[in-house]
């Protein structure tokens, strides 16, 4: 597992950005707080090429096979998957709630679009999260500037296209500032 700055090996296909994959799981009975959240989140590895991504991804459990309250977070290297991080604090996320059984396919479609720069919003994308919960699963994509509506609309339209979900699928946008206030998204 590569930690710290990553480099592509000869012959590999470089990505526009380097990314880090994180994993977190809520331990039963543990009260949620920002401190607990930060302690629970573990770096799995970092990559900067297509080949390095597949090598890491192939070793990870698919989201649908996870149990309990677990999350994968795939963020640009240097951005911590926390609302309070400088790159995130003025931002927000699009949220899509999924019926059980769809998370693995949707997560793969989402992250391939992100790694392949399909969102076409410059530096705006921060990362993506898949959250495994009891009744439903949730995927989200985080961007830097919550009040830039042209950008958030563009992200929503690309997300809808790459996830290939029914047209009536509900997509919600939530600013991290609101999440911090209501503490709802742990």
């Amino acid at each position: 597992v590569q930690r710290g700055p990553v480099k592509p090996s000869p012959g590999e296909h470089r990505l526009q950005y380097a990314y880090s994959l994180w994993f977190s799981r809520r331990t039963p009975g543990n009260k949620t707080s920002s401190t607990n959240y930060e302690q629970n989140i573990k770096l799995v590895g970092s990559f900067c090429s297509v080949e390095q991504f597949w090598a890491l991804y192939s070793h990870c459990v698919r989201p649908c096979d996870l149990s309990g309250h677990s999350d994968f977070h795939l963020f640009k290297e240097g951005i911590k998957p926390m609302w309070e991080h400088d790159a995130n604090k003025g931002g927000g996320k699009w949220i899509v709630r999924l019926k059980k059984g769809l998370a693995s396919r949707c997560w793969e479609n989402l992250i391939l679009a992100m790694l392949g720069e399909q969102f076409m919003v410059g530096e705006e994308i921060c990362g993506a999260v898949v959250s495994i919960r009891f009744q439903e699963d949730i995927i989200s994509i985080w961007n830097k500037t919550a009040n830039d509506q042209a950008t958030t609309n563009r992200i929503r339209d690309t997300l809808r296209r790459v996830l290939n979900l029914p047209p009536n699928t509900i997509m919600e946008y939530k600013t991290h500032n609101d999440s911090l206030k209501d503490n709802s998204s742990f």
């Binding site: 590999e12 080949e51 399909q118």
Partner: peptide
């Protein structure tokens, strides 16, 4: 500079490259 863009199919093809193992 130019952005490095990959379509989904291209990324899927590279999944089977020997370099990705």
């Amino acid at each position: 500079g130019t952005r490095i863009i990959y379509e989904r199919n291209k990324l899927m093809q590279m999944r089977n490259s020997p370099l990705a193992r």
